[in-house]
């Protein structure tokens, strides 16, 4: 395998803390927040993260496939979660300590509950509005109630972090600047 070449493209409005481990070809969109101690590894193919995502401490995002790993907008990756899925839509919540294998593609408005393991052997797609919960990773559909409120909370959260994080943490810039 060819050695991993580091290439970070970080949008000027993104907040990426200094204490973050990045490896490989990574693109981070505008307004996305990466907390300290998060890890993003593009081992095989590149990783492209959309706008206004929040990646909390200890979260690990890995791309083991050759293809581009695309993460949409307004996703929340909570503390210590691990994501390897090749595509992630918009407005998903991956809760604390959840793990998603590279065989799962995530749609939009999905929630993976705290400590859930999503590790099927065959490829599958998580439909929009799917909620995965409990120790056995059971599934349900979300009716979409309170969607506006949820989106509002996410937006305000990102807005708050964009203002507060630079006051206490050193930031990292892309190669371009």
């Amino acid at each position: 395998m060819a050695p991993i070449r580091d290439k970070f493209t970080i949008h000027s409005k993104a907040i990426v803390c200094q204490d973050v481990e990045l490896k490989g070809d990574i693109t981070i969109g505008s307004g996305t927040i990466v907390h300290p101690k998060a890890t993003i590894f593009a081992i095989a193919g590149p990783i492209v993260i959309g706008s206004s995502c929040i990646i909390e401490e200890g979260a690990i995002i890995v791309n083991r496939r050759k293809e581009v790993m695309r993460i949409g907008d307004d996703n929340l990756f909570e503390i210590g979660c691990r994501i390897e899925s090749p595509t992630v839509g918009d407005f998903n919540t991956i809760s604390t300590r959840a793990r998603v294998h590279h065989t799962v593609r995530i749609g939009s408005y999905c929630v993976v509950g705290a400590g859930c393991l999503l590790v099927p052997t065959e490829d599958e797609i998580l439909d929009d509005y799917t909620v995965v919960y409990g120790p056995a990773a059971e599934r349900r559909k979300w009716s979409g109630r309170g969607k506006v409120q949820e989106a509002d909370l996410r937006r305000k959260h990102a807005e708050y972090l964009r203002e507060m994080l630079p006051k206490f943490n050193r930031l990292r810039r892309g190669d371009g600047t």
Binding site: E57, I79, L153, K156, H157, Y160
Partner: peptide, 16 residues
């Protein structure tokens, strides 16, 4: 261990 304060919106304002 990770210790972080909780957050919510209260009366339309987001806060930790």
């Amino acid at each position: 261990c990770v210790m972080r304060p909780p957050y919510k919106t209260y009366r339309g304002n987001f806060n930790y």
